[in-house]
Design a binder for these strands. Structure first.
Length: 445
DNA sequence: TCTGGGGTCCTAGGACCC
DNA sequence: TCTGGGGTCCTAGGACCC
């Protein structure tokens, strides 16, 4: 019964004029249990069984093809179900990437630790991720969409936004006709199912795509806000994560409707001007962000979690080799994609899960592995290395396309550089401080 | 045996410039 | 001695997403 806020219906001044009766129709498409579904195409005998994808093991496929006696190659289709590895026998670190729907019935889901999942569903079959295969199917379903509706925004391997507004059929039944066409085309080409939500904007489309999973379509209009959106938990809003969700809960706000009932100023008081205003806006279903079809990468990184926590001194050789390898892989990524970077950074995760990052912006762009290794090595000297390490990462940012690097001001480089440094910084950067503490271990890298 | 890997965006402070 | 504002760049950390 509550009337919608008058602003909701108002057109944003930036919105292009549309023919009479044309509604903005944005779709969000989400592939159903993507990583697992890709595997099920290869192993159809696992259909209907609880299967999880994840963990660190990469050899499963080979072992399966070899068979228990290691003799001859077996056809994937004929490998008996009993030969597949089970979650209860899983050893090692890692999280679940995707679980099939039968596995989800046991409470197992994405991002859950393997060990916890093994307790919930020990009989689930575990398979490693096959990134090449996943990427192949990702390209396949996206190109299928592009052939039908070209205004598409990539949101990772298994998700996209599509602007239906000006696509033929995009207005029929609120977008349902076009959604059905896309769903069917993707299934015909890949054998995979997806779920689609169509709504006046990306925010609502994203929520709508979850309404009818798997293989579902749901259509949301502006006037459905109270009935379909407000009853949902605030965590369903894309951008409200564990922290904000918890804080809202402490303030007695659980649903999006309750959030919408709050005074904007009050929200700004608790969450800051920008976040508070944003929360108020999204709770009223407002979002005029466009579907962005092209974007440039901001950073490229590689990181790895060790099988066991490593110590900077005791495991020096091992760490050093891993570190160099990460640098080389970042360099390869840059070269393969045709980019150079001038900010090189490192990331450490300690055994207590605390994260430290350091980075350095160089006066030149590079994609050279040895240079990256050298710059990253400097960063390493500025970070405490007394605790055991769980993860090490290397990151390149401030990117430019190779050959299109901005000309950097040289100015009076040396004096400027010296002026900008605080006293003592030179010691740290030089790594010659010998000032004790954790610094002593740094040079071991 | 808790808790992967690859990203984006935001904030906040300090240095520096005009 | 006290007192300016913009603006940009850099660094570190953190929230969040897929």
């Amino acid at each position: 019964m509550t009337a919608l806020d008058p602003d909701t219906a108002a057109h944003s001044p930036a919105a292009p004029a549309r023919p009479e009766g044309t509604l903005r129709r944005i779709a969000h498409l989400d592939m159903d249990a993507f990583f697992a579904s890709v595997e099920l195409l290869r192993y159809p005998q696992l259909k209907g069984l609880p299967v999880v994808i994840g963990g660190g093991r990469r050899k499963v496929d080979e072992l399966l093809l070899q068979g228990p006696d290691g003799e001859g190659l077996r056809e994937r289709h004929f490998i008996p179900v009993e030969d597949f590895p089970l979650l209860k026998d899983y050893v090692g670190r890692g999280v679940i990437t995707t679980a099939t729907y039968p596995a989800r019935q046991f409470g197992v889901g994405s991002a859950m630790g393997m060990m916890k999942a093994a307790k919930l569903c020990p009989q689930a079959i575990v398979l490693p991720v096959d990134f090449d295969e996943v990427r192949r199917f990702s390209r396949l379903f996206k190109s299928t969409i592009m052939d039908i509706a070209p205004v598409m925004q990539d949101r990772g391997v298994d998700e996209v936004y599509i602007d239906f507004t000006d696509v033929p059929g995009g207005q029929r039944e609120g977008g349902r006709v076009l959604a059905r066409l896309i769903q069917k085309s993707i299934f015909d080409v890949t054998g995979l199912t997806c779920s689609i939500g169509v709504a006046p904007n990306r925010l609502l489309a994203k929520m709508a795509s979850e309404f009818n999973k798997p293989n579902g379509i749901s259509i949301v209009y502006e006037e459905d806000l109270q009935s379909k959106i407000w009853p949902l938990h605030v965590r369903k809003i894309n951008g409200i994560g564990p922290k904000a969700g918890e804080k809202l809960a402490r303030l007695g706000i659980e649903t999006i409707g309750q959030l919408a009932a709050q005074d904007e100023q009050w929200l700004m008081g608790h969450f800051g001007k920008s976040t508070g205003a944003w929360m108020h806006r999204v709770s009223w279903g407002r979002d005029d962000s466009p579907v962005v079809t092209e974007s440039e990468p901001v950073s490229m990184s590689r990181e790895t979690t060790f099988d066991r926590d490593l110590h900077a001194v005791r495991d020096r050789a091992e760490l050093s080799a891993i570190f160099t390898d990460l640098c080389m892989r970042v360099a390869e990524d840059l070269k393969r994609k045709g980019y150079v970077a001038r900010t090189i950074g490192i990331k450490l995760r300690y055994d207590d899960f605390k994260i430290a990052t350091r980075d350095h912006t160089a006066p030149i762009y590079t994609a050279d592995g040895a240079t990256i290794r050298q710059l990253a090595g400097q960063c390493l000297k500025r970070v405490p290395l007394d605790k055991r390490l769980r993860l090490l990462g290397v990151r390149a940012s401030t990117l430019a396309r190779l050959g299109e690097e901005p000309v950097l001001e040289t100015r009076t480089a040396a004096p400027l550089d010296a002026r900008r440094r605080k006293p003592g910084a030179a010691d740290r950067l030089g790594g010659q401080s010998g000032s004790g503490g954790s610094g002593g271990t740094a040079s071991l890298f």
